[in-house]
Structure formats: C-alpha cells, structure tokens
Simulated assay, not measured.
Amino acid sequence: MSDENDVGEVLAGICEAAAQLILPLWKTGLTVHAKADESPVTEADRRGEALILEHLGRRFPGVPVISEEDASEFGTPEAIGPRFFLVDPVDGTKAFVRGDPNFTVNIALIVDGRPVAGAVNAPPTGETWFTQGGRAMKRVNGGAAQPVRVRPWPKGKAVALISHTMKDETRQKLMDEYGFDLPEPMDSSIKFVRIAEGAADIYPRHGPTMEWDIAAGHAVLEQAGGSVLTPEGRPVLYGKAAEGFRNGWFVAKGG
C-alpha cells in the first residue's frame, strides 16, 4: 500500500477509467434488472465494478474490497479487517436509468473505521473529486487539480441537498430541525462533493444507505473541512459487518 496521502489520486484515476466505460452506456436503453432488495442494476454497474475490482487488485494486492454488486449477489462478509476498500460503481442507478446526470463512481479506503481516502467521479460532466495530502481536490476531464473547500453557512440562503422522493412534510420537518432555507433535490453521492466544493451546505439523511454509498463522498467532504456525523453528533463509522454494512441516519454538512 502506498502512502495514504497519495491513494486518493490513484482512486481518482480508477474512477475515471470506470467512467469512460460506463458513460457510453448512458441513455442507451439498457435492460434494468432487479436485485434481491428490489433496487435496480444494469450492465453499466456490472462492467464498471469488474474494471474497478481488476484495477484495485493489481494496484493494492491483498487489500479486501467490498463492492455493491458483488455484495448484492453474494452477500457481505461476516467480518472485515481494519483496512479495506468500499466501491460503488454506479451510485444513483435510478438517475442513470432515467437519463439524469447525477450518478457517480465511488471508491473509498477505510482504515480503522474511518474513510481516509476517496474519489468520486461524475461521468456526464467529467468532474472528479478526490483526497490528496489531507486536502480535497477537484479536476475536470483530466485537467489540473485544484483544492476545494466548504463555504461558511450562508444565513438565510443555506442550500440542502435532499432526495427526489422526499415528501413535503418530511422536507419541512428537516428544514425546521436543521435551519436550511433552500431544498434542492439531487441523487447520488454527488451531494457530498457539491457541499465539499462550496456549492451547497447540508445533506440530512434520515433513511437507509449502505456504506459503499457514502464512504468516498464522506472522505472528500471531511478533507474539504466538512463533517459527516450522526444526528447525535457522533462519527459515522465503517466496517459494520454485523449490520450488513448498513448505515444509520447521518447529517453531512459544510462550514
């Protein structure tokens, strides 16, 4: 394993390679299959995952990988060591199927329950966010990377990124609880990195997610100066094998 400060850039390159494979399949009317939990999966998910697993196996031999589609088909392990990767080859498959642009490729390195490195790519825009040297970076279409940072909470103009399917009464309850002003529906882990780059302020999630859904975005947001905490203010931890790698509620927040 190379220095963890450098792993994020390696993961960014792998995400970008997967994106090049996935993007030509977008808006092509791919057959949508139902997984055991009734969530959708397409050939893009499967091809992207195969490429990512091949690259990780070559670059980081011996480091375990927990990946969404493999976990869906074969189940999650009963135990996991202190160091492993979490992979979601297409986060936001429903958006991908609808033809919406908010889907992402995600890889995170977990060490002792914390996401120490990660990369998130948005294939339709060519944007990649990744961790490097304790900072969050962004590059577009392979160009020069620039650091990104959360913005201070803009009183009266705070933007919350929420689910497309959120009911009006739930949205109002969250507005009252967290004090944001402008709810904006958005799919996938791109919510984390939009907060990380200062384009939004909060993502309250009072609903189920899996560890691979959020770990990469969590890593980027944290190194951009933000936080991902439980509603009680405790850290969100990873490697919860006993819970099938499911997350509880959390709040992702900028400055």
Results as ranks from 00 to 15, higher is better:
residue 74 F to I: 01
residue 169 E to S: 14
residue 123 P to L: 03
residue 70 D to C: 11
residue 137 M to K: 06
residue 104 T to E: 00
residue 92 G to D: 08
residue 38 E to V: 09
residue 53 L to E: 15
residue 62 G to T: 08
residue 125 T to N: 09
residue 149 R to T: 13
residue 138 K to F: 00
residue 78 E to Q: 10
residue 128 T to P: 03
residue 172 Q to H: 05
residue 58 R to H: 13
residue 113 G to T: 02
residue 136 A to W: 02
residue 103 F to H: 04
residue 156 G to H: 05
residue 63 V to M: 14
residue 114 R to Q: 15
residue 67 S to D: 05
residue 142 G to L: 13
residue 89 P to K: 06
residue 108 A to K: 02
residue 83 R to C: 08
residue 127 E to W: 10
residue 47 R to W: 05
residue 63 V to A: 12
residue 171 R to Q: 15
residue 91 D to N: 03
residue 104 T to H: 00
residue 173 K to R: 15
residue 67 S to E: 08
residue 42 T to A: 03
residue 123 P to W: 02
residue 113 G to P: 04
residue 129 W to N: 10
residue 128 T to F: 03
residue 77 P to Q: 09
residue 85 F to Q: 10
residue 158 A to N: 11
residue 121 N to L: 11
residue 164 H to F: 09
residue 102 N to V: 00
residue 78 E to T: 11
residue 134 G to D: 12
residue 87 V to W: 02
residue 109 L to M: 09
residue 107 I to H: 01
residue 113 G to W: 01
residue 62 G to N: 08
residue 123 P to K: 06
residue 57 G to C: 03
residue 78 E to N: 07
residue 69 E to L: 06
residue 158 A to R: 15
residue 172 Q to N: 09
residue 139 R to N: 13
residue 124 P to E: 06
residue 68 E to T: 02
residue 82 P to N: 04
residue 117 A to Q: 01
residue 91 D to S: 03
residue 90 V to C: 01
residue 162 I to A: 05
residue 97 V to W: 03
residue 110 I to G: 00
residue 62 G to E: 07
residue 168 D to K: 08
residue 133 G to S: 04
residue 84 F to M: 12
residue 123 P to I: 07
residue 53 L to W: 06
residue 102 N to G: 01
residue 135 R to F: 05
residue 120 V to N: 00
residue 81 G to S: 08
residue 111 V to K: 05
residue 66 I to F: 04
residue 125 T to K: 07
residue 114 R to G: 05
residue 168 D to L: 07
residue 91 D to Q: 01
residue 140 V to E: 10
residue 76 T to A: 14
residue 41 V to A: 12
residue 111 V to E: 15
residue 45 D to R: 03
residue 169 E to Q: 12
residue 168 D to W: 08
residue 138 K to L: 11
residue 117 A to P: 00
residue 124 P to F: 03
residue 161 L to S: 05
residue 83 R to F: 04
residue 109 L to A: 02
residue 96 F to P: 01
residue 58 R to F: 11
residue 85 F to N: 10
residue 101 P to R: 11
residue 118 G to Q: 04
residue 112 D to K: 01
residue 39 S to M: 13
residue 168 D to A: 15
residue 63 V to Q: 13
residue 152 P to T: 09
residue 53 L to M: 07
residue 103 F to D: 05
residue 152 P to D: 12
residue 75 G to I: 06
residue 59 R to S: 14
residue 135 R to N: 06
residue 157 K to C: 08
residue 88 D to Q: 01
residue 149 R to K: 14
residue 90 V to L: 06
residue 116 V to N: 05
residue 37 D to H: 13
residue 48 G to L: 03
residue 78 E to H: 05
residue 82 P to K: 03
residue 46 R to E: 15
residue 72 S to F: 10
residue 84 F to W: 13
residue 102 N to I: 00
residue 108 A to Y: 04
residue 80 I to K: 10
residue 162 I to E: 04
residue 108 A to I: 04
residue 137 M to A: 12
residue 102 N to A: 09
residue 69 E to P: 02
residue 132 Q to S: 10
residue 140 V to G: 01
residue 60 F to S: 02
residue 79 A to T: 14
